[in-house]
Amino acid sequence: MRVSFTVNGRRQEADDVWEGESLLYVLRERLGLPGSKNACEQGECGSCTVRLDGVPVCSCLVAAGQAEGREIVTVEGLADFARQRSEHTGCATGACNSVGGDGISLDEAQRWAAKGQDSQTGEGAELSPVQQAFIDAGAVQCGFCTPGLLIAADEMLERNPNPTDADIREALSGNLCRCTGYEKIMDAVRLAAARQSEAV
């Protein structure tokens, strides 16, 4: 069958899609967007998380045909998505209006703000605040869980700009990571939140 939908703001079409294919498969194998990852294909790891009409979902559990006419944002489009949101609201995580809460202090979060000298590959790429924070905090090791975590974390910060640690853990509880022990992922999300509230 033919399936067409919008991915990262661009209209996309795929032909000869087998009816049992997932949105994840179509993104990865037909549209050249392998950023969303295929770790479990049973909704138990979150590596394939994309936004479907704004809502974070496991793209492995969305039948390709169900995506017809919908809007998808994948990790490949996250930086653009955040930039447009920022232009729209003046806030890159989309939730800068709320103030207060009991998030981590900027000082604490910036313990990890050490900048590297040689991001030799992909240097100069424009990143969303969450993406930058994941790099800065050392939240990326093998990186296979990273795309899904970025989508989930970005969406959480959009809703909740000053999350407590328990809020972060709950929001990311559908994203497995096997390398980091999650501590640096916590640091990264705290850092993104702190930078955001500082930017206001």
């Binding site: 009816e19 049992g20 492995c60 969305v62 039948a63 169900q66």
Partner: peptide, 25 residues
């Protein structure tokens, strides 16, 4: 199939090959 959270697992893992999928979304 609506949310797909049961059906798609069965399809992805080759546990089920229905003749028709009826999308309710």
């Amino acid at each position: 199939i609506a949310g797909g959270t049961d059906v798609m697992v069965e399809i992805n893992f080759d546990h089920r090959r229905p003749e028709y999928l009826l999308d309710l979304t």
